[in-house]
Simulated scan of single mutants.
Amino acid sequence: MNKIYGFFFDISGDYAHFRHIFTQSFFDTLLAPPKTTISGILAAALGYDDEIEVIDLNERVLVGVKIIKMSGFAQEIINIKNLKEKTIQFTPVYRNLIVKPIYRIYLGLEDKELIHMTREALKSPKHPLYLGISEALATIENISPIDSIKEDSTLTIESITPVIDEGNLPSHKVDKRNFIVPARRYHTVKSFKLTKRGRLPHEYIDLIMFYGGYLEFKKPIDVFQIQDERVALF
């Protein structure tokens, strides 16, 4: 593997919603931003307006996520257009929100110039940053220095983890904090492609997300070490 450079930053907001695309009767949320959302945040910070640039960035960057804090969940009712009707009609739908989340986002890139540009852009974003929806403005803090990142392995991990081996699924070990969210497997979009019909999902990924405690595997998994933290990048 070529040399990879990386850093992390914390992103927070009053609310977040990352649409779980396989729920229809109501809008459920993933617990943390998927790769495509993180790439969108980076693209907004960099000032990318061309969708091809955003898709290319998503292909090049490795990302990892750890949920630092969340206070709970809330629900709201939103009105969405009913496209099946001949006249414009709106249907009320429940949307789940995450309350006061803080995420640590880890990035890895082989392109040293781009990783430096990205870090500088996060200090002063060209466009507003959101946690999934336009009502959820985001704040960036705690941007770490850039360093080369190393491959490693571990039996335990505190970051969101992709499912690589069906025979090595983890157990969720819980600590003594008051509020936890049990580990759950989400099937979501990893990348998009541009077609004549517009942007469509290209690759999917299964991610294990949780809040509180850590995941423990039966066999060691491959991870990366960023600033003394072992994290899964995908």
Rank of each mutant, 00 (worst) to 15 (best):
K196I: 07
G167I: 08
L31H: 03
H127L: 12
K193S: 05
K81P: 06
Y94Q: 14
L107M: 04
I98D: 02
E158Q: 11
G13L: 03
T91F: 13
I226N: 08
R184L: 07
F90D: 10
P220M: 08
L30C: 06
D222P: 03
T87Y: 11
G132Y: 00
Y214D: 10
D111I: 02
P34N: 00
H20D: 15
S159D: 09
F73S: 01
S171F: 13
L215G: 01
F217N: 11
V54N: 10
I41R: 06
I67V: 15
N96L: 12
S124N: 13
T139F: 14
F234G: 15
G198A: 01
R104S: 04
T118W: 04
K218V: 12
A232S: 14
E120G: 08
K190F: 09
I55P: 01
A44E: 00
I140Q: 01
E53A: 07
T23E: 08
F224V: 11
I67E: 12
I157C: 07
V223Y: 13
F27V: 10
L30T: 00
Y130Q: 08
I41L: 08
Y103F: 05
T139Y: 14
P170N: 09
I11N: 07
S134G: 11
V174Q: 10
R197H: 14
L131N: 00
L114H: 09
F8C: 11
L62D: 13
E158G: 09
S153W: 12
V181C: 02
V174R: 11
T36Y: 03
A183K: 04
M117P: 04
T195V: 02
D56P: 05
M117E: 15
Y204T: 08
R60Q: 13
A16P: 03
V181K: 08
V65H: 06
F179T: 02
T87I: 15
D28E: 14
L31R: 03
R199Y: 05
T87D: 13
I78T: 00
K193R: 09
K196R: 13
I146A: 09
F8D: 12
I143F: 08
R197A: 15
R199P: 02
L46G: 00
I164D: 11
R60D: 10
F192K: 03
D10Q: 09
E76C: 02
H172A: 04
N79V: 05
R199T: 14
D206Y: 06
D10R: 07
D165T: 09
E76M: 09
F234N: 15
P201L: 05
E158Y: 11
A138G: 05
E135I: 09
K218A: 15
D206V: 06
Q24A: 15
I38A: 06
N142Q: 08
L155I: 01
F7P: 08
D175W: 05
D50I: 00
I11T: 10
D14Y: 15
T154H: 06
T23S: 14
